[in-house]
Simulated scan of single mutants.
Amino acid sequence: MDKLTIGLVLPDVLGTYGDDGNALVLRQRARMRGLKAEILPIKLNEPVPDSLDIYTLGGGEDTAQILAAEHLIADGGLSRAAAAGHPVLAICAGLQVLGESFRASGRIVDGVGLIDATTAGMQERAIGEVASTPTGTGITAELTEPLTGFENHMGATILGPAAQPLGEITRGVGNADTNATADLRDGAMQRTAEGAVQGNVIATYMHGPALARNPQLADLLLAKAMGITLAELEPLDIPAVTQLRAERLRRS
């Protein structure tokens, strides 16, 4: 691969919480390895190319989520890309939009259906540091380092059998609270879940941006886009990133 193209999907409606930074992290870590890398912003009502190397989606409010879901369903490009094996990273509202359904503006809205998940509302906002141990499921099998971020949401996301958690919570709320899972047979497992993994889609409630705080996760996405293993990717030694990560993990 001589060039990497990162799709920044709907930054005009899913760019509320600085999650555009994930695309910047991917581009910079690729360039530091001598790879040509560019970001392609894809705005609302623009077609989503289905042949980019990586796709990132960020967070947004209710109206923005509805607009994003309607566009991505009608366009179909992101779904075709995921089906073709291109890695997708979805953050917070992006996670909800890629699920089967989510609640927004007082109603249930159809999602894109790339993740077997439904999202309802929580009684209290989950806000603060969130940390988890990676489950190592599916595409994330090579992840070994703790995951850390900042959550700010009121979505209670319940995973269906086709999706697995990205991480097992060690701090924070993650996908769901006690009230959301009280009647579920696997409610205890759901209450420890953070994020989701299904096929080539990795989704999480971690802001931060997530990839700035979790460089191993960023490198995993790069490796998958390049068709190599994480172990084959040239390591990077960036003291500032190591220091930031150590500080955040101490707080977790």
Rank of each mutant, 00 (worst) to 15 (best):
I6V: 01
V48E: 01
L236G: 08
P215Q: 02
L114E: 09
E234M: 13
D186A: 06
P161D: 04
D12R: 10
E38R: 13
E168H: 12
L4F: 00
T133S: 14
Q243C: 15
D183E: 11
L52S: 01
G76C: 05
A156H: 15
L249S: 08
D19I: 03
A82S: 03
Q243P: 15
V88M: 11
A69W: 11
D19Y: 12
R29F: 15
E129M: 14
K43M: 11
M189D: 15
H207F: 03
A83S: 11
G113R: 07
G85I: 01
G15S: 10
A246E: 11
A117I: 00
N179Q: 13
L220Q: 07
E151P: 13
A131T: 04
L114W: 04
P235M: 09
A37F: 01
A182H: 14
I54E: 02
A74N: 10
L52F: 13
I6P: 08
I115Y: 14
M32N: 05
V197M: 05
A188I: 10
D177S: 03
L4N: 01
G155C: 09
P239K: 06
T140G: 15
L217Q: 08
L10K: 03
A210P: 13
A246K: 06
R171W: 10
A37E: 00
E232Q: 09
V48F: 07
I54Q: 04
L98A: 04
I66E: 01
P134F: 05
R31L: 07
T137W: 10
N175C: 03
E151C: 08
I42T: 04
L67K: 13
T119W: 06
Q198S: 06
L40W: 10
R80P: 09
R213I: 07
Q243T: 15
I66G: 12
I139G: 04
F150A: 05
P41T: 00
I127P: 13
N152V: 03
E234H: 13
L98V: 00
R185M: 14
I73P: 07
I115R: 11
A163G: 05
G111L: 06
I42V: 05
N179E: 13
M32Q: 05
L222T: 00
A30M: 07
R251P: 08
G187C: 06
H153Q: 04
A225V: 00
K43R: 12
A23E: 06
N45V: 02
L211C: 09
E46D: 10
V201M: 02
G172D: 00
A23G: 13
E145H: 13
H86V: 00
G167P: 03
T118R: 13
G94V: 00
P11G: 07
Q198M: 08
I202W: 02
G227P: 11
A188Q: 09
R245A: 14
M32S: 09
I6K: 01
V48A: 07
H71E: 08
K36G: 04
V112Y: 01
L67G: 06
A218Q: 02
G21C: 05
I108S: 14
T178H: 12
A117D: 07
D186V: 03
Y205I: 02
I127Y: 12
I169K: 12
L89K: 08
E145D: 14
Q164M: 05
L114S: 10
A23V: 03
R107D: 02
G128I: 01
